[in-house]
Design a protein around this nucleic acid. Structure first.
Lengths: 199, 199, 199, 199
DNA sequence: TATGAATGAGTGTTCATTCAT
DNA sequence: AATGAATGAACACTCATTCAT
């Protein structure tokens, strides 16, 4: 197998990642055959093993690769903003958009990863925490600026916010006929989270 | 196979459901062997097929059985309350508590169910919607009583609320050392959802 | 899998051992498919794994089982004899006969076992030594009785004798048209070993 | 592919033969990958197929090459001797020495070759017979000179003698701590074969 | 009902061999 | 000549499911 740098640039590596993401999203990890992925990627079965250690490794690689992209994208955009509320709104919108634009990846991350082996769950956890902490930082900043309530605990609420947004994203992806615009959905969640449900 | 009523009362049926829930929660659906379940339930492999059509059917049965219980419990408790905010708080607390008291079931529902075949996802959807609609009703009631903002769309927000609460529950279950009391967590989410993050 | 005692009595276990011995002798271990053995034994592929851990385990089992039988047969017969020369003659004749009557087993033992993994070679070694030591004992006895030369070292020569006899047996098995009777062959070796080539 | 003469002189050809001999001796034919040999020989996998038809062909080539060398060496040395007993002693010593000095080759010849396909066994047989017949000739010569017993049949006994010597050689190679000198071993076998065990 | 031995379809992975460069 | 990435046939082993007892 080539070294990591070469692999990432390799045409075949990318093709396999794309194919696997699609196949996993469609059928689920356990119902996907390595030969399905090979066919979709238009390579021989054996070729996959030149780029990946085994089937699990494909899943891990999808995760690594896309989480880095996700985290990078979100961090970059938020760093250009000052207002915590604006940041929160952007986070919500970006997450929905990322999921929307990478539906296969999103489904794999949300669904397939969760049921993998303990090892994978733990492995995945650290990258996931990085993502969650974007929210935590935004909340702390808001508190520091006197905009957000001091009594909320960012460490707790970051996860609730992520859950709210991610569940919306999941529905959004699975919904065939979109009943709302994404902006509408983002706004609703943003209002709920910032202003509260109470009048 | 016995008819449904007989099955439900059967000692073996219950033992298999219990065993399967435990095994699925521990290893995941695809990594659990039917023989693992049989061993845990202390019956022969073949006996399982007297009570369940196949391995998938066990998972579906766990889902059916527990969702009915969950929905019943939550509906009963909320029906005794008038105040929508109180209802929301109770919903949050009850969901966390249900997950806490039924960790195996909760893990199976949250994780295993999602990655099952399309059929199962669609099948599960209707029961899941019933549960979500408890939240929608509570929101509509709050709006009707002039307590909740009119501009939020219960059909959208119900899912965000569920996502927030369920993600917390998942973390709660997976967290080894509990850093907060459940009441604390429920309060935090409730404040966030009703009052909003903004001061 | 049943326990060892039950397995040995099992009809299927014996059928698989027989089939595997035949297939291994015919095609060699590495060119034999587990499905070949299953077909020959008239069982399903999977059934083999109810009785054996894996393909290697079949080979080991053949070895264990037959070496015990061989050693037992030879020891029993020799123990009835007094004269060391008579014992040597019987050993030679018995070995040739055993190989002749168990050609498949003999081929597997002689040929297939040698090229197996280190583990198997070492594992096999101890049983093999037991067999070799039958010869060593016979030589020492002959020396003690003043019949055999004192200057030969049983520990060295036991192996040479075994090699001579076993090589003959191998040829005997592989020879299609037998040019000599087995008694003739046994006699020739016996004379060579006891009287020497020199007039 | 180059023609035969060129191949034999080629540096790469020799390197591959050396590497394959080493790898086969270490892991056995079936557990050796062509890529292992390529790595050991410091050539690309594909290069091997410029010099050998396939993996089997490498084994055959090792056999051909080394048997010719062995036979040549033994024949040359024995042709300088007159006394049949001296010839036998030299044969024994030379064989042990050859095996000792070419342990990798010896192991491949003794062990790996035996379990190859029928074709290879038959192919190998003719060269092997040439080697055996060195012994037969030596015996006949001894009989003709009135030194060896007339009643022994060289065609039978040649194989027994080879078996005795080769088994010793095998043990010698596999023995980690040498308990005897090679001369000692050769002497013991020589005495046994010429004088017999009997006093 | 209950059993568990038997089944055999299904699949991840390996590796000898090829061939474009 | 030499390379090594790519191929795809081959196979050991698993496990959901069945059925004779």
């Amino acid at each position: 197998m080539k070294n990591t740098a070469e692999k990432l640039q390799s045409d075949k590596y990318q093709k396999i990642i794309q194919a696997a993401t699609h196949v996993f999203a469609l059928k689920g990890f356990y119902n996907s055959k390595v030969s399905d992925i090979a066919e979709e990627a238009d390579v021989a079965d054996g070729t996959i093993y030149l780029y990946f250690k085994n089937k699990d490794d494909i899943l891990i690689s999808i995760f690594e690769h896309s989480m880095d992209t996700f985290i990078g994208t979100v961090e970059n955009t938020l760093s250009t903003l000052q207002d915590p509320i604006e940041k929160l709104h952007q986070f919500i919108f970006l997450h929905l958009e990322l999921v929307q634009n990478n539906q296969d990846v999103a489904q794999v991350l949300q669904i397939e990863l969760r049921q993998s082996s303990k090892f994978m769950k733990e492995y995945a956890a650290s990258k996931f925490l990085d993502y969650l902490n974007i929210v935590a930082n935004l909340l702390e900043e808001g508190q520091a600026k006197g905009i957000f309530r001091k009594e909320i605990n960012p460490a707790i609420v970051k996860r609730a916010i992520f859950g709210a947004v991610d569940e919306m994203a999941l529905e959004w992806v699975l919904m065939k006929k979109k009943k709302y615009t994404m902006e509408e959905v983002a706004n609703q969640i943003c209002i709920m989270l910032t202003e509260g449900l109470k009048k």
